[in-house]
Design a protein around this nucleic acid. Structure first.
Lengths: 110, 110
DNA sequence: ACAAACCATAACCAAACGGTTATGGATTGT
DNA sequence: ACAATCCATAACCGTTTGGTTATGGTTTGT
């Protein structure tokens, strides 16, 4: 719980940058990716991607797995918990979120 | 919806700074506050607070109301919607959130 | 009328950020 | 053995950021 608060700052900061959010989104949608693949996707240089991944790693939003000369990264959505907790406390009320959930489930069909 | 995406960046950026989060939290907990009161709370100079409030205002996370020589600010939690939406899409928190919701509804009785 | 209070903006500054190119270490393919 | 690939780190650079003090406009209190 103190861990949560300590990490909250890292999570908020990491997701403040749109490129970093895009990388995290890509990893969430497409699953595990190499740095090479992410570089092609992100539209910035490979070192830039590497450092973005380092920031995401610090926030525990991604994990990496080395395999030969390539490093595979995967999203770690549990690390979003501090942000969700914060929203629970300071923003989104249950009623509102329930409505949203309902409408989203509806859109997803039966 | 495009509006949501456009604003998402502002919201994420605004909440990336701990001082700004603290101000928003204070406004959420204690309700409307003057800049003077927020300055006492935030532990930074009054101009710093004013500019933080400007950033929060840009993200529509706060509204202001002038009353004589003082400006009252209030939190606007609906503006967190883009962040909640983003978490819905990329957080993959369905299971956990659904559990939480379920247990809450249970506690609320039949 | 005048002093004080409240707030926003301007001007300034050090530090952090996000990008780049250069480099080198480890691994793979030929 | 050698060349090429993958990745991380270093070095560098312009811009943004978060803070400060200074200033001025408006409103309030005496």
């Amino acid at each position: 719980m103190c861990v949560t608060l300590a990490n909250a700052n890292h999570v908020f900061r990491a997701l403040a940058d749109p490129t970093r959010r895009a990388i995290f989104e890509e990893l969430t949608r497409q699953g595990e990716q190499t740095v090479h693949a992410l570089t092609r996707y992100a539209g910035v240089s490979q070192p830039a991607v590497s450092r973005h991944l380092t920031v995401l790693k610090r926030a525990k939003l991604v994990r990496h797995r080395r395999e030969g000369r390539e490093t595979h990264y995967r999203a770690q959505p549990q690390a979003l918990a501090p942000m969700v907790d914060w929203l629970d406390l300071y923003g989104a009320f249950w009623r509102e979120r329930f409505d949203r959930l309902e409408s989203l489930l509806e859109r997803m069909g039966p």
